[in-house]
Amino acid sequence: MPTPRQRQLSARQLQERRDVGDRIRYLRRQQRLSQERLAELIGRDRQTVGNYESGRTPPNLDDLIAIAQCLDVSTWRLFHG
């Protein structure tokens, strides 16, 4: 049986990742924050934020909470616009 990391993601899961990333990017730009500044605020590097925004890597729960706080939105807004 494959582990969660080994299983193939469905098209819907990949789209959800991209949608969350798009919302992070949109809200970050609304706040006039660079990827570098957001990364600094959440304790990550710019590349990590870029990976979140592109959907390549999903943010973990702690990062989602930190991102939402930095962007002054509720965490659910990252999922549902």
Rank of each mutant, 00 (worst) to 15 (best):
T75E: 07
Q30S: 10
I24E: 02
M1S: 12
D22T: 13
R32Q: 12
R17M: 10
L71K: 11
L38G: 03
L71P: 03
V73L: 04
L64T: 02
T48P: 00
Y52D: 04
F79R: 11
Q13A: 11
R77H: 11
G50S: 09
I24M: 01
Q69E: 12
Y26I: 09
G21K: 12
T75Q: 12
R77W: 07
Y26Q: 15
N51F: 12
R23Q: 03
M1L: 11
N60E: 08
Q30L: 14
T75F: 06
E40K: 13
M1N: 07
N51Y: 13
L9F: 09
P59A: 06
R18G: 00
V20C: 03
R25A: 10
S10M: 06
V73K: 08
Y52E: 05
V20H: 04
G50A: 07
S34G: 02
P58G: 05
Q35F: 05
I42W: 08
Q15S: 12
L14V: 12
T75W: 09
G55R: 08
A11G: 02
D45G: 05
N60Y: 10
R46C: 03
L71M: 09
T48F: 09
R32N: 11
W76E: 12
R12N: 06
A11C: 01
Q47R: 15
I24V: 13
I24N: 02
R17Q: 08
R17T: 00
W76S: 13
T48M: 11
L38H: 06
T3H: 08
R18W: 04
T3I: 03
Y26S: 14
E16W: 09
R18P: 00
R23L: 03
R32I: 01
I67G: 01
V49Q: 03
I65P: 00
Q6W: 05
L27V: 03
H80T: 13
D62E: 12
T57F: 11
D22G: 11
S34Q: 03
L64C: 09
Y26P: 00
L41T: 02
R29N: 06
H80Y: 13
S74Q: 15
L14H: 06
Q8E: 12
R28F: 03
D63H: 15
R32P: 00
R25I: 01
Q69D: 12
W76D: 15
R23A: 01
R56P: 00
R77L: 09
P4S: 01
T3R: 14
I65G: 01
Y52P: 04
P59F: 08
E36C: 04
L64D: 01
R56N: 09
P58T: 08
S54P: 04
D19T: 10
A39F: 04
T75D: 04
A11V: 10
L9K: 13
R32K: 13
F79I: 09
R7F: 01
D22E: 15
R23T: 08
A66H: 11
Q30E: 15
E53R: 11
L41R: 15
